[in-house]
Structure formats: structure tokens, C-alpha cells
Design a protein around this nucleic acid. Structure first.
Length: 658
RNA sequence: GCCGAAGUAGCUCAGGGGUAGAGCAACGCUCUCGUAAAGCGUAGGCCGGCGGUUCGAAUCCGCUCUUCGGCUCCA
């Protein structure tokens, strides 16, 4: 009977008819046995459900395996339940909070009462998890009434689940059980625990119940799991790789920055000579791009009268994350927490005509914010940092084009570093109190950034509730060389500050009008960007950025003069070079240059001196042969000029494309 | 700020109630050397800080500071 049939559309757009009430598993089976074996859950019209639930209505269907995000989500969600089951067996008094999947694994928040769990106990829990997984217990879904659910957890004296259930509607409450463990859960889950072949509990940490500082702090156990042992090993290798790249370690090894807790203070980095070269090179690079695009650079002081921030509304709005004001004469002054208000005053310092708009004011401006001590982290989270800030004052008619220009600039920047970019449009959500400015402006700004993105043919996602308080924004989320995502640059539209600072321009009609402001910062913060670059390149910077570019290694003292001659020539052409004049063997000098990640080594001895050549070693590649000195110079000049990426990055990208 | 872990030489780490250890780095001397570590020697530490227990503490206990992993926050 046709009434009993539903039509399902597969990801490849093919359609198939099925009996109403068929399960996801059966659909998978109808495609292939392998798919059915690997299936973890099924997504129908965007809703992820269990494989054994009957499908009542047609729609878009996707069978989720480990290879899809939904599949991994299901897998890790079930793993969280497995973790809870193991904990329940080992610590019968434990009370469970919530246990969701996350980007890389899962966690469970647990109240262990007076007992403290240390990381030494994790292997035992891990062992129990695998033992339980081997029992291949099925995940059984059960619909329960609200009173039943409340009864169940009241008996267990679990106030957390009771609190959660009280907020749910009767009729939509489900429990999931596997083995001896039952949990309040809306699902979905994998068919049985047997699919979890490998698990690793990675850390234990405190976490407030429902993220509320005033609530009780529960013990959060983090873990990750896989359907194959091999995947776990690969994951652990990747974690090791990330550790090797840690900018805090490399930053110290390579002499990039220093944190001096004793006398300077937490979160206040000291840039060492090597780090300063990298930072200045980045600044020069962006400055050049900005000059080409009509930006004007300005410099503003590090403190200002508090009136400035009261006018912008940042104070007292962000009072908790600012350094306390200080008394100066009869006024209060503050360390500047952002550059924008200063730029607004520069804009407002003269009468502006529509003919001179857009005015684009740029500054590498250092700002100070009071971050909580526990939040500080190397260069990536600090209390004093420099933004590659700029504010573009333009007319409403110019807005879209200016947005496009800033997007284009940001894209060029990340391309230079070999970082693929994902774009996110951050809109406001329904909670209008969180935001300033008129509703109509918001709607207009949101559609402008969307139109600009569309016209540029960008792929983007929309995130509601991620806007800043004064306007919607475009966030650039980059992926580094080992696939991690970082939110970097942003472009923000602002209709609020022009009002607050009463900014105007004289239009063609001879009337005063409000400009619109675009805030933008491709790097975001120089400190954080450098920390990400260090990890992205694993310290092997492109030639143009690297602090020491060429190491000259004379074979013995007899060839020092030739080495000095070459060095002088390279220096004259602007290269950063060093001669290893130490009384060491060649092998040792090479080794030291290699471990400090210097891109080029020039070994010079009798042969080279006689033929006016250099023997060239490239970092990580080794000996690449002997070249006439002049050929070497043109090769490296070109490499630096083109801002070529280190070979390895190029290789990884090429591989990723295939 | 809160939870957990850790602080021993410039770096990486061992030790552990009875005079503080190694490797690398540094410094000195010898070797003048051909593609990832020459040899010998010297120096280097209030075992993060304060207090307690003890005849005696780097070691045990308490507090504190700092760092790391999380939580919260991020204009």
C-alpha cells in the first residue's frame, strides 16, 4: 500500500522508497552489509537518532559511521555512558551530573562526595571501561514518565539529575541503559558497547555544576575513545606532536619570548630579540598591505582618562576584565583596554566630508586587560598585548565594499601562512539586552555582511549569539598544519560607537550624517598570532620571518675570512646571518644549526673558497649541493621575496588537496 | 578566582630524615677538523618562599607563591 511507504533521500541525492517504520539499521543493510556493520546512528532531516528506532516519515537520511561528525558524536556520547558505568562499578556512591561528547572525545561530571579522584586512578577506570565494552551490552532506550524519572533519581539521592528532569516536559523523557547502568538521556547511542575498542581517559579537572561559579564543583573526567586500537595510537601520536610544537616550549628554546614572574608579573611577555624580529616582520608585512589599501597609521597612548571608556560604554561594562583605574590629578585614568575609542576621537578631531570617506585608521596598538590568573597561557593568553587594529569610518553606501576589502585583506594574510580559513558570520540572538544599538541597524548590518560574503562567493556558517555587543561580525577560523582550529581575525560592523561619540560627516546634501564603523584585525593579537605561528610551523618559520636565516660554517679557522666575505655580502642584501666561529668540528656546528631550526647553512672550506661557491644545507633536507655564491643569493632572495612556505608545509598541503 | 598536578644547576631530569647527583649548555686548555655531538679540565644549587615536627628537613606536616591541565570569562 502506498500509504505505508516513505521516501528517503540519501546524501548523494538518490531517493529510495521504504516501508514506513523501517529502522536505520535496516536501511543501512539494504545498501551494504559493511555499512550496516559500521553504522553508529542515523540522521533524519538533521535529527540524529538510534539505528533501531522506526522511521515514520520520509526525508533526508544519512547513515552515520565513524567517518562522520554525527557518527563520532554518537560514539563519544555512548563512551561517556560507558565511563559512567565503569565509575559506578568502582565507586558505587558516585552521583552523576552530565556527560556529553565534545570535539575531541567526551567527559562526565561526577560528584564523588568527599572523595578526591586523582589522575592515578584513571587507568583503573579505563580498564573497567574496556572490560565492560567487551560485554557488548546493548543500549536500551526507555520512555519514562516524569514522576517515574524523578522517583528513580530521588531514590539515588542524585539532586543533579532531579534538577535536570524538573526542567523537562512529561512525555519527552527517556532513559538509556546498558549493562547495570541507567542514565537520563535523550540519546542517541550506538547499538552496543562492543563497538568501543579503545579508550583513554585523558585528564581530571574540576568543573562547576552547570558552569555556575556559585554551584558545587564536580569532578570532570575527560576521555576519548575509538572503534580501533590503531586510531587511539594515532591520536596519541598527534597529541605528542602537538606537545612538541607547544609554543611555550619552542618559544623558550628559540628565544622568542620570556615570562618573568618574579619581577615583571604574570601574563606580561618580554619579547626577546628573536621574537621581536618575527613580530616586526609580521607588522611590516601587514603595514605594507594596509598602505596599499589606503589605511593611515596612527599611534595612541597606553592610558587615557576614564571618560573615554565611559563614553564608549566599555566601562563599566567590562569592568571585571580591566585593570583598576588610577588617580591622576583630579581625574581617573585607565590602562587602555582597547584602541577603538582613541581612533574615534582622532576621526572626530576634524570636520569630515563625504569626499574623504572612507577614513581608515590603523594602529599596532597595545592594550591591557585583566585576565584571571588561571586563564593566562604562554603568549596565547596574556594581560598586555598588541592588536593589529584598524577602524574604517565610511558611509552606509560604502559599507559593503569596505567589508569586502577587509575580507580580501584577511584572506591574503592567511594564505601567506598556508592556513586554510573557515568563515563564520556571528549574529546576535533573541536576547536583545545583550546588545547595543537599534534593531534596524542590526538587521541591516547582518544582511550587509551576508551579502558581501555571498557576492565574494564565500562558504560560511552563521552563528547566532556570537556577535559582539555593538554589532555583528565575521570571524575567520583558521586550521593549522596539524588540523587544529583557531579563531583569529575578525571584521565587525558597528553602528553604536558613531552614536556614542557623536561622529559625523558632511554629506553631498550639506547635512551631517552618521558614518558606520568597521573594526577589523586580521591577526587579532600579535602575541596570540605568533603563538599560533610557532605551533603551525613547529618553529620552522618561512625564510622571510625566521630570526636567523643563514648560518655560515667555516670548516676550520683557515676559511674564516672567506666566510666573513660571504657574510658581509649577505648582510648587505638584508639577510640575517651568523658565522659559527666556535672551535668545534663541522658536524657539531651543523647539528647545532639544525636543532635551532636555521633554514640555511653554508659550509665553506678550501673548495668553496677556490671556486667562489658555497655548500648549502637546507634545514630538515640536509646537503642540497654546492652552488656558485651568486646563484645562492638569488635563490634565497627570491624565496624571501615570495614569502615561500617551508617545504614541509607545502607538502602537507599538497597531500591534503589529494 | 575555583578544582587537580608539579616546582631540585641556564636546560632536561634522577634522588630522598644524616655533607646535593647526571647529561647537555657555560668557562679554560688541547685538537684546525668536510655535512647531525672531538678530548680533558673548571665552575655552577638556601632542592620556589615562609612556618612547624625533629638532635638533624631538600626529604614529613601546614601555609604561601609560581607554572601546567581544566572550569568560568574573552570588547
Amino acid at each position: 500500500m502506498p500509504g505505508n511507504q516513505i521516501t528517503l533521500t540519501f546524501p548523494d541525492s538518490s531517493e529510495k522508497k521504504f516501508q514506513k517504520g523501517i529502522t536505520g539499521y535496516q536501511v543501512a543493510e539494504s545498501i551494504s552489509k559493511g555499512l550496516a556493520r559500521n553504522a553508529l546512528s542515523v540522521t533524519i532531516d538533521g535529527n540524529v537518532i538510534d539505528l533501531d528506532l522506526p522511521i515514520q516519515n520520509g526525508g533526508e537520511i544519512e547513515i552515520n559511521t565513524w567517518d562522520s561528525d554525527d557518527g563520532q558524536y554518537t560514539f563519544w556520547h555512548s563512551s561517556a555512558h560507558l565511563l559512567a558505568e565503569a565509575v559506578q562499578e568502582l565507586y558505587p556512591d558516585a552521583k552523576f551530573g552530565i556527560g556529553p561528547p565534545i570535539e575531541n572525545g567526551f567527559y562526565y561530571d561526577i560528584d564523588f562526595g568527599e572523595r578526591k579522584i586523582s589522575s592515578e586512578e584513571l587507568p583503573e577506570i579505563e580498564k573497567k571501561m574496556i572490560e565492560l565494552a567487551r560485554q557488548k551490552s546493548r543500549f536500551i532506550r526507555k520512555e519514562v514518565s516524569k514522576s517515574e524519572a524523578l522517583d528513580f533519581y530521588r531514590k539515588k539521592e542524585n539532586k543533579y539529575k532531579v534538577e535536570l528532569i524538573e526542567e523537562l516536559k512529561d512525555g519527552e523523557i527517556t532513559f538509556y541503559s546498558q549493562g547495570e547502568f541507567t542514565d537520563l538521556c535523550m540519546g542517541p547511542h550506538v547499538p552496543d558497547t562492543g563497538v568501543i575498542k579503545a579508550a583513554k581517559l585523558t585528564s581530571v579537572a574540576g568543573a562547576y555544576w552547570r558552569g555556575d561559579v556559585k554551584s558545587k564543583q564536580l569532578t570532570r573526567i575527560y576521555g576519548i575513545s575509538f572503534p580501533k586500537q590503531k586510531l587511539l595510537s594515532e591520536y596519541l601520536e598527534q597529541v605528542e606532536e602537538a606537545k612538541k610544537r607547544d609554543h611555550k616550549k619552542l618559544g623558550k628554546d628559540l628565544g622568542i619570548y620570556l615570562m618573568d614572574q618574579q619581577m615583571v608579573g604574570s601574563g606580561l611577555p618580554l619579547w626577546l630579540p628573536n621574537g621581536t624580529i618575527i613580530r616586526r616582520k609580521l607588522e611590516e608585512y601587514l603595514r605594507q598591505l594596509q598602505v596599499e589599501r589606503g589605511y593611515q597609521e596612527v599611534i595612541t597612548p597606553h592610558i587615557a582618562n576614564i571618560k573615554l571608556y565611559e563614553t564608549s560604554g566599555h566601562y563599566p561594562y567590562y569592568k571585571d576584565s580591566q585593570f583598576n583605574p588610577m588617580k591622576v590629578d583630579d581625574d581617573e585614568y585607565m590602562l587602555k583596554p582597547m584602541n577603538c575609542p582613541h581612533h574615534h576621537r582622532i576621526y572626530d578631531s576634524q570636520l569630515r566630508s563625504y569626499r574623504e570617506l572612507p577614513v581608515r585608521l590603523a594602529e599596532f596598538g597595545t592594550v591591557y586587560r585583566y585576565e584571571q590568573s588561571g586563564e593566562l597561557n604562554g603568549l596565547s593568553r596574556v594581560r598586555g598585548f598588541t592588536q593589529d587594529d584598524a577602524h574604517i569610518y565610511c558611509t552606509h553606501d560604502q559599507l559593503k565594499q569596505e567589508i569586502k576589502n577587509t575580507i580580501e585583506l584577511t584572506q591574503i594574510v592567511f594564505e601567506t601562512f598556508g592556513m586554510p580559513v573557515d568563515i563564520r558570520l556571528s549574529y546576535r540572538d533573541e536576547n536583545e539586552d545583550k546588545y547595543g544599538g537599534k534593531s534596524e541597524f542590526w538587521d541591516r548590518a547582518q544582511s550587509e555582511i551576508r551579502e558581501a560574503s555571498d557576492e565574494m562567493g564565500l562558504n560560511y556558517t552563521i552563528a547566532r549569539g556570537e556577535a559582539s555587543f555593538y554589532g555583528p561580525k565575521i570571524d575567520f577560523i583558521i586550521r593549522d598544519a596539524i588540523g587544529r582550529k583557531w579563531q583569529l581575525g575578525t571584521v565587525q560592523v558597528d553602528y553604536v560607537m558613531p552614536e556614542r561619540f557623536d561622529l559625523t560627516y558632511v554629506g553631498a546634501d550639506n547635512d551631517k550624517h552618521r558614518p558606520v564603523i568597521i573594526h577589523r584585525a586580521p591577526f587579532g593579537s600579535m602575541e596570540r598570532f605568533v603563538s599560533i605561528l610557532i605551533e603551525h610551523f613547529a618553529g620552522d618559520f618561512p625564510l622571510w620571518l625566521t630570526p636567523l636565516q643563514i648560518q655560515l660554517i667555516p670548516v676550520s679557522d683557515d676559511y674564516l675570512s672567506y666566510a666573513r666575505k660571504c657574510a658581509k655580502e649577505l648582510q648587505n642584501r638584508g639577510f640575517r646571518i651568523d658565522i659559527d666561529e666556535r672551535n668545534e668540528q663541522v658536524g657539531a656546528k651543523i647539528r647545532d644549526a639544525e636543532t635551532t631550526k636555521i633554514p640555511y647553512m653554508l659550509i665553506v672550506g678550501e673548495k668553496e673558497e677556490n671556486n667562489n661557491t658555497v655548500s648549502v644545507r637546507r634545514h630538515k633536507l640536509g646537503d642540497i649541493g654546492t652552488f656558485p655564491f651568486s646563484d645562492f643569493i638569488s635563490k634565497v632572495e627570491q624565496e624571501a621575496e615570495n614569502k615561500d612556505l617551508p617545504t614541509e608545509i607545502l607538502t602537507e598541503q599538497t597531500l591534503n588537496k589529494n
